[in-house]
Design a protein around this nucleic acid. Structure first.
Length: 579
DNA sequence: GCCGTTTTCGGCCCGACTGTTTTCAGTCG
């Protein structure tokens, strides 16, 4: 079993935490965190790279020392430094660092002075009012620790972006009703369209004398005001979700958007470029440092994001790409992709109806697709294996085909493509015979059973299914459900290579709980020349709107219009669906 | 521990907010 990048990153981050508790050099700690980020954002397994003889020290933030340590981790599974640290630092101290307001310094002090070794000890010490007696601590810190523990114990995982969307939209609308507000945007990972979002950063510019901070903290869904200042406030909503609001001067709005959109890794990378050009970059602007006779620094950019990037000789980088996964280098060379947009989509190729587990009739779904201006819609109800969804056997699929033919005669301006979401069985065969599949325009093929097969078997199962001449699109390729179910073991790179060889398309399922293929998978697919289909897997008319989340994810995966099959017109699409 | 078209040594992002202080340390993003 190869060591995955996420495991390496976990080990490096843990090392950083333990070093922090020990009070080590902060730059050394930062180096471990930086290396963890680099490893995490690789589109290839570090283990494979090492095996292929690649030198990891060529990666940003990884030097000779860390390259050696990582190599040891992937080849032997051991990390002696971390093992040593485990002997020196009690395991529970790392948990304490997760309590809001507790950093390395405070953890260390409490361990040394009060023998606090875990969260329970911390709780006890706080309740006995021992913490307030320590130098540099007081009543309020003690109280905030108690609250921090409570909040952590009831904390929710990062929320799917669609859920955050429902929180963000009304809140932005509420804030923008304050008359003196000029600009307002939600930044952070929400703006980068990450699949899950941990908190919300809202930026505003407004005229003097605005009451925006008061308006914010008095929002009806605010449960607790964590902090309130003139330019920055933080609240917790009743759902436990944290929202920050920052007020900025107009001249700084662009640089603030860059700064608060992140990602952190992206910001570090572009600030490094600025520094090389003797420029200082922060949320207030890009500044020329004092030199010669001039004693004061001078702002040379900040009003717009475009201007900020221009100043450091980069083309404008769309938020979805800002992950330090090669976008900075591409922007330097003027080689950024022209990302796909929602308007490029001409149809949806994964739609269910009430014939199986959809909520709406065939006619309703087709009309809903029509209202979105689509040129075509692919109807793909389940096959018989999915009993809970009342999957179709051969006979019922024939009925669906006839129903589509009948409806097609009545509707104009949209082509209904006859499809099916057919199960890939354990032996790699499809759930319905060729004799009926051949009468369809296309198939969406998916795994709904036997999730626990070994990586090798699962990969082989899908590749074998792809050999079937009627296999058109591989649906939700890893089967994961965000915050609910881990992906099944499958070698996605081998699957993508297999898809390329067989001219099979791969789905990016836009359902906000799936978003499967993920962003890295999309990028790999693009690099391998595999075409992606973005589909919503709609079970109700309104689900067709999830397309925007799919497009957001596709943009994060560097996909352009040409990489996505359902940006083609019907004629071109039919050609792509043909094997 | 990383990094280098001023450098192989000496830098490393930095500002806001809070609380505990009376000018600053710690945390966070």
């Amino acid at each position: 079993m190869p060591v995955h990048n996420s495991e390496i990153a976990d080990k490096l981050n843990e090392t950083a935490d333990l070093l922090e508790i020990k009070g080590e050099n902060q730059f050394r700690i930062r180096a471990y965190r930086g290396a963890a980020r680099t490893i995490e954002s690789l589109s290839q397994d570090a283990a494979q790279m090492t095996e292929a003889g690649k030198d990891l020290s060529e990666l940003p933030g990884i030097g000779r020392d860390l390259a050696g340590k990582i190599k040891k981790i992937v080849s032997t599974g051991t990390f002696p430094l971390l093992d040593r640290l485990h002997k020196q630092v009690p395991a529970g101290l790392r948990d304490i660092m997760k309590v809001s307001g507790m950093g390395g310094k405070r953890v260390k002090k409490m361990f040394e002075a009060l023998k606090v070794k875990n969260i329970d000890d911390l709780k006890t010490a706080a309740r006995r009012h021992e913490i307030r007696e320590l130098e540099g601590f007081g009543e309020k810190i003690e109280q905030s620790i108690i609250e921090g523990i409570e909040r952590m114990e009831t904390a929710k995982p990062r929320m799917p972006i669609a859920v955050v969307d429902e929180i963000a939209r009304p809140l932005l609308e509420y804030l923008s009703r304050e008359k003196k507000v000029k600009n307002i945007d939600a930044a952070g990972s929400y703006r980068r369209r990450t699949e899950t979002v941990g908190d919300l950063d809202i930026l505003v510019t407004c005229k003097q004398g605005s009451q925006i901070m008061d308006r914010f903290t008095k929002y009806e869904n605010v449960e607790k005001v964590v902090s309130q200042g003139n330019t920055k406030s933080t609240v917790l909503l009743r759902s436990g979700f944290q929202v920050d609001l920052r007020v900025l001067p107009q001249v700084s709005y662009g640089s603030a958007l860059v700064y608060f959109t992140g990602s952190k890794a992206h910001n570090v990378a572009i600030r490094r470029i600025a520094l090389k050009k003797k420029l200082k970059m922060n949320e207030y602007g890009v500044f020329k440092l004092p030199s010669g006779r001039r004693k004061k620094e001078r702002r040379i950019a900040g009003k717009s994001e475009k201007q900020v990037y221009q100043t450091i000789d980069l083309s404008y980088i769309p938020p979805e790409l800002r992950e330090n996964r090669g976008e900075v280098e591409a922007a330097k060379k003027r080689k950024l992709p022209k990302l796909i947009e929602l308007d490029d989509i001409r149809g949806d190729l994964h739609v269910h109806t009430a014939r199986t587990d959809g909520k709406y009739s065939l006619k309703d779904m087709v009309e809903a697709a029509q209202r979105r201006g689509y040129e075509y819609v692919g109807v793909t109800d389940h096959s018989k294996k999915v009993r809970v969804a009342h999957g179709m056997d051969k006979k019922r699929l024939r009925e669906e085909i006839r129903a589509i033919d009948k409806l097609q005669k009545k509707v104009k301006g949209i082509t209904i493509l006859k499809g099916i979401e057919v199960d890939i069985l354990e032996d790699g065969s499809l759930d319905l015979p060729q004799s009926v599949l051949k009468d369809l325009d296309f198939t969406v093929c998916s795994v709904h059973s036997k999730f626990k097969l070994s990586r090798k078997k699962q990969t082989g199962r899908v590749l074998k299914a792809m050999d079937n001449a009627h296999f058109s699109i591989f649906a939700h390729p890893t089967g994961r459900r965000i915050n609910e179910r881990e992906p099944y073991e499958i070698d996605i790179e081998e699957i993508l290579r297999g898809a390329r060889e067989r001219n099979v398309l791969v789905e990016l399922n836009a359902h906000p709980h799936r978003l499967d293929l993920n962003d890295r998978g999309c990028k790999t697919a693009k690099e391998l020349g595999v075409k992606i289909v973005i589909s919503t897997d709609a079970h109700a008319a309104g689900d067709l709107d999830s397309m925007r989340f799919g497009v957001g994810q596709a943009r994060r995966g560097w996909l352009e219009k040409k990489d996505v099959a359902n940006t083609r017109n019907l004629k071109q699409l039919r050609r792509l669906l043909k094997r």
